[in-house]
């Protein structure tokens, strides 16, 4: 029983990270109906931004909340700029081209960043600096709660709550929802569609940057190909929840994280990565629109 509770907590944590990344896929899909395959590399670059930034500023000398927050910030800024560039230079020129062209470009950008990462950061794994020190906060039998676990979950929840507020209650959020529904109608409301799409990339990329630092905190080994696995799982999470749907991305992420943890704990750790593919195939067969997704209403 205690073991199960521990797995539940771990799964939830992993799920929160998947959810953060999945939200980026879903947001971009919402406005452009494009699967931004480069998103997983934005996540990877976020980890390296934190790595270089924290090392440059020698944040490991004084680990703590300040160092951690600063690392998050550096990652978020670099990811935002990268996301913005990807949108501006890779996707925007193809805005009116067939969707397939943009999709192929997305895969191209993803591969490009993987290789550029290997050239610039080197192919050998690096170790993410300890900007925060872990400690056990709570222990009862087999249940152990670490500071990192609490940090990951709280930061992820705060980011998601912030996103919810932004989307539902602010002018920018209203503009994003309007653009997701129809470029033309949004334009007639005086909404700058290009600007809103850029903002969407900034937000989605920022969430990936946050996720990268959170993961690197717990699993400090980082390398230029690290985005592939997390990105793929988060993408499956987004599809599982219903791509384009915010609550779906969170739900999908949590399901993904929990089931991965449980499969590894009670079945076999060799199934860890196969699970995502299994889930993807299953959902595409049973409910292609995802758990919370609706069959697309034709736009007017």
């Amino acid at each position: 029983m205690e073991e199960f509770v521990q797995h539940l907590l771990n799964g939830l944590n992993l799920g929160a990270v998947y959810a953060l990344i999945a939200l980026g896929y879903t947001m971009v899909y919402g406005v452009l109906q494009l699967i931004n395959f480069a998103h997983s590399e934005v996540y990877m670059v976020g980890a390296f931004a934190g790595f270089y930034g924290a090392n440059f500023l020698r944040l490991t000398d004084k680990p703590g909340w300040g160092a951690f927050a600063l690392t998050l910030l550096m990652s978020v800024v670099v990811c935002s700029v990268l996301g913005l560039c990807i949108e501006r230079f890779a996707y925007r020129p193809l805005r009116n081209a067939p969707k397939l062209n943009a999709l192929i470009t997305a895969i191209g950008v993803s591969l490009f960043l993987q290789f550029a990462g290997q050239v610039v950061f080197g192919a050998t794994p690096q170790f993410f600096p300890q900007v925060l020190e872990d400690r056990t906060l709570f222990q009862a039998g087999a249940i152990q709660i670490q500071l990192f676990d609490v940090t990951i979950l709280s930061v992820a929840l705060i980011a998601m709550a912030g996103l919810h507020y932004l989307i539902q209650y602010t002018r920018t959020g209203m503009a994003i929802r309007a653009v997701s529904f129809s470029f033309r109608s949004a334009t007639l409301m005086g909404i700058n569609v290009n600007g809103v799409i850029a903002v969407t990339f900034i937000i989605g990329s920022s969430l990936a940057g946050i996720a990268a630092v959170l993961v690197a905190l717990k699993y400090p080994k980082i390398d230029p190909l690290m985005g592939m696995l997390y990105g793929m799982k988060a993408f499956v999470a987004a599809v599982l929840g219903g791509i384009g749907n915010f609550r779906g991305a969170v739900l999908g992420g949590i399901i993904m994280g929990l089931s991965e943890e449980m499969v590894v704990a009670y079945l076999s750790s060799s199934l860890r990565d196969a699970l995502a593919f299994g889930l993807l195939i299953f959902i595409l067969l049973v409910r292609p629109s995802g758990l919370l997704g609706q069959m697309k209403v034709e736009k007017v």
């Binding site: 929802r177 309007a178 007639l188 409301m189 909404i191």
Partner: peptide, 17 residues
């Protein structure tokens, strides 16, 4: 040109965006 994913009130507010 109604935003069917929003409430009536939000649609009206978009007019004043």
């Amino acid at each position: 040109g109604i935003f069917l994913n929003m409430t009536v009130e939000e649609n009206l507010k978009l007019g004043a965006f």
